[in-house]
Amino acid sequence: MTLDELLDNSRPQIAQRTPELLDDLCLLARETSAMSSQPRGRRRATIASLVAIAVFGLGTAAVASGHLPFGWTTTTGGHCLITSASVIMADPTTTGSEAAFQHSTTAQREAAVKEANRYLTGYEFAGIDVPSAVATWKRSEAAAIAAQPVASERQPRLEGDELEVEAMRYRVQSDLKTHIEKLGLPFDALMPIFESTGTVGPDGVFRCGG
């Protein structure tokens, strides 16, 4: 059995879909309409294409930093915008952060979060050399891909706007890591969160705003 088949078959069983249950689900859709406070009959004026906030990392507690939002025009003509950069405590069960939690105190981790957010608030995003950041990212990406053993499952190389946004995130995160570790604080206990505006099109390609 292939890995895909094993994973597909590991899906837990669900309750039987009886006619009664299906009727109740349809009824629930109506009941929730009445329960919601949204007045009916109000229609949005326009529907823009869905503008996604690309969140790099997990969590939603991003805090706007002093030098943000920061925007730049990419080589493909898109206007990319980093809207926030902040740090929360990592989940200790996440791979990569368990050791940091074992080898640091609560006070050290809290100090790391505080210092990281202070650092990001004062970070000069405008001072980033974008071509240099892209070159650095490409080296890191190439090393990561080379370490992935199964050729058919290797991650694709980033291109276009997605490449530049990721390169910027990587540069800021690398600078933050250097700063935090220089202070003897546990960087791996942190979860950096960067948000940028952009759209994932029907083709699955991420693009910054036009």
Binding site: L3, A52, V55, F56, P156, L158
Partner: peptide, 30 residues
């Protein structure tokens, strides 16, 4: 999940590598 597609692809590739390690012989390459 609110992540960009490349991040998801990378995480999925990592997950499959871990799963192959743990599930061993039951998962030949396809």
């Amino acid at each position: 999940l609110g992540v960009n597609a490349s991040t998801a692809r990378s995480r999925y590739a990592q997950a499959r590598a871990v799963l192959r390690t743990h599930l061993g012989d039951a998962t030949p390459d396809t």
